[in-house]
Each structure stands twice: as structure tokens, then as C-alpha cells.
Amino acid sequence: MFTTGFKFYFGLAAALVLSAVIYGYATGGEHVGPITWGWKGGVGEHIGYTMLMASGVVASAISFVIVAFRDADPSAQAHYLGVDEIVPTATVTGSYWPVVGAFGAGVGLLGLVLTPVLFVGGIVICSLAAIEWMMDAWADRATGDAEANAALRDRVMAPFEIPVAGTLAVGVIVLAGSRIFLNASKNGAVFWAGLIAILIFGIGVLYAAKPKMNRNIIAGLVLTCGLAVIAGGVVAGVDGEREFHPHEPHGEDHGDDHAEDDHSE
């Protein structure tokens, strides 16, 4: 009647609730407060009491769910499905979206502190990853033929993916790059801009020259550059922008083409 899972989680729950009561009385609980969640009398020190009681309640909820599923035992699952033997785990195809989602979450966190635009960008990346993830999950179980599922998924999603991915990639490079340029000195910014342009150009040339290039190399380049841009963005964003001082007008000869300049060279 009581499954192993139930015994473990309910035992955990009972011990934690008992601990909460003991803790409540030991830390100044009054009357029946610790056994009535503070209804009549104090519960003692609140953080410890609340966390122990909450852990106990959550563990007991798990125990009730798990006993309802009979520990999700293979025999119970087979019985539920009305089959003799439970099916093996279904195949799940590989996907870029988990790593893109994680990257998006990281960008969002950076944006939360550094700039709202980056934050919105992170949310957009995460949302797109979630949509794509959902479509992958849908396609995985569309039919029993893996190739047909992949073709079905591409037919639906490819027309959206390519333009959106290109726009986003440019957006992230521009945003993180701008943090670096604003932090660097005037000449430094030119140097970094040149370096990033050379890198993008170099990768493009490499790919054009060797279209059969191993996809691991492409993945490595993209990952390294992505992480470098984010790390650079973090350091530069935290360090802040260099100081800009408006130019005083120097007369007609100089004009005011460059309204501001920095003194960080």
C-alpha cells in the first residue's frame, strides 16, 4: 500500500515538521503556537520555523503525488497505458535551442544590470528559444518517422529562423561591441572595431574558401567569439564609459565636426 517513494518523502516530511515544532519551542514558541502554525501563540524564530515547516509540507505533497502514481513504477505505468510492458524512453533529437536559451538568459542578466536594451535582447532570445524548443518537441512526436518529423519542422520554421537569427546576431554584436567601444579610449575603440571587423571578415573568408569546413570548427568559432563578446561586454559595461568632454569652440578653423572628445588617450 505504501510505496518506497512515499515512505521516503513522507518520512522526510514528518521529520521536518517535527523538527519545526521542536525548533519553534526551543527558540521561544509559546502555548500551542508551533503546532498550530502560530494560530494560538508564537512560533519562536520565524525563518527557521517557516523553512522547516515549508520543507515538510512540500515533501509531504511530493509523497502524496508519488504514492498516487505508485512511485511511477514501470508496472504501474504499463498498467496505466494498458500495455504488457512499458515502452523505452522515446528518442529526442539534438537541438541548438537549449544552449541558445542559456546564452539568452545570460545576456538578459547582463542587461538587467548594464543596459535595458541588452535585457530586452535577452528576453527576446529566450522567448525565441522557447518557441523553437516547443516546435522541436512538437515535431519529435508528429509522426513515428524521424526524418519526416525533421522535414516537417524545417518546412514550418526555416522561413522565420534565418532572418530572425541574422538580425539577432547583428544586434548582440552591436550591443556588446558598443559597450567595449564606449569603455575603450578613442584609439582603443578604433583598434577593437578593426579587430572585430577583421575577425568577422576572416571567418567569412574561411567559410567561403572552405564550404565543407568541419561543423565543429564553425561551432567553436561562433562559441568563442560569442563568449568573448559577452565577457568583453561585462568587463567594459561594469567599468563604465570613458569620460566625454565637450569641445570648446576654437574658432572657424576647427569647426565643430567633433562636438566631443575624450581625454583618455
Binding site: 529526442v92 537549449p98 536559451g101 545570460g106 542578466l109 563568449l227 565577457a231 561585462v234
Partner: peptide, 19 residues
Amino acid sequence: RAAAAAAWGFVVGAAIMIV
């Protein structure tokens, strides 16, 4: 896929924390 996301999320989170 969630397990993969956890692994990469850990990498990104650890990188942000350490840097």
C-alpha cells in the same frame, strides 16, 4: 533538452559570476 540547458546555463552563470 532541459538537462542540456542546465549544463549550458551553469557555464554561462559561472562565467558571469567569476568574471
